[in-house]
């Protein structure tokens, strides 16, 4: 089962490699990983999408917590968080397919951010399932290049991560 985990980390030397090396060393999967600073100066936040059964997820959470630089680990799998991902998609758009691409972009409330006579570059945001869906529709038209940020997630409700 797929899980989205937020990992709050000290902005210290080598923290990303500690996390990455934990996953590779113990044979855990990473479907996506993003990391960037937060509103707190010395803290960064990683969002990791991973998969495994309950026992593996328990180990992943515990092993992450064991790393010295990790402040908090939040597992959003029970629907307690909202997830978003951004994708930049370069798609072939010539003659009759140009209109079809625009229709799809419109339906998904995506944006065209670059255009040439032969292509469109699309910016799409949404939860990862929505990104998968737009890609499924664009693929037959000719996907030239794709970049996804990986999911980011935040808890629902009024409380911040500190509770």
């Amino acid at each position: 089962m797929q899980h989205t985990i937020s990992v709050l980390v000290e902005n210290e030397f080598g923290v990303l490699s500690r996390v990455a090396s934990l996953f590779s060393g113990r044979g855990f999967n990473i479907d996506s990983l993003t990391v960037a600073p937060t509103n707190e100066e010395k803290m960064s936040r990683m969002t990791i999408v991973t998969r495994g059964d309950d026992q593996i997820l328990e180990q992943i959470t515990k092993q992450l917590n064991k790393l010295i630089d990790i402040i908090k680990v939040i597992d959003f799998t029970d629907g307690s968080g909202v997830e978003r991902e951004l994708a930049l998609i370069k798609v072939t758009a010539e003659d009759e397919s140009r209109a079809e691409v625009l229709r799809i972009v419109d339906i998904f409330r995506a944006k065209i951010i670059d255009v040439t006579p032969k292509s469109y570059t699309i910016e799409a945001t949404g939860n990862p399932v929505k990104i998968d869906a737009i890609l499924d529709l664009l693929r037959p038209l000719g996907l030239k290049e794709l970049v996804r940020t990986g999911a980011v997630a935040i808890g629902r409700g009024a409380k911040g991560w500190k509770g």
């Binding site: 030397f13 080598g14 490699s17 500690r18 090396s21 060393g25 010295i68």
Partner: peptide, 16 residues
């Protein structure tokens, strides 16, 4: 050496 020993140390520091 920090990279080499990462999987076999509890923690490591580089003094900058």
């Amino acid at each position: 050496i920090i990279g080499i020993t990462r999987p076999c140390t509890k923690h490591s520091f580089l003094v900058k």
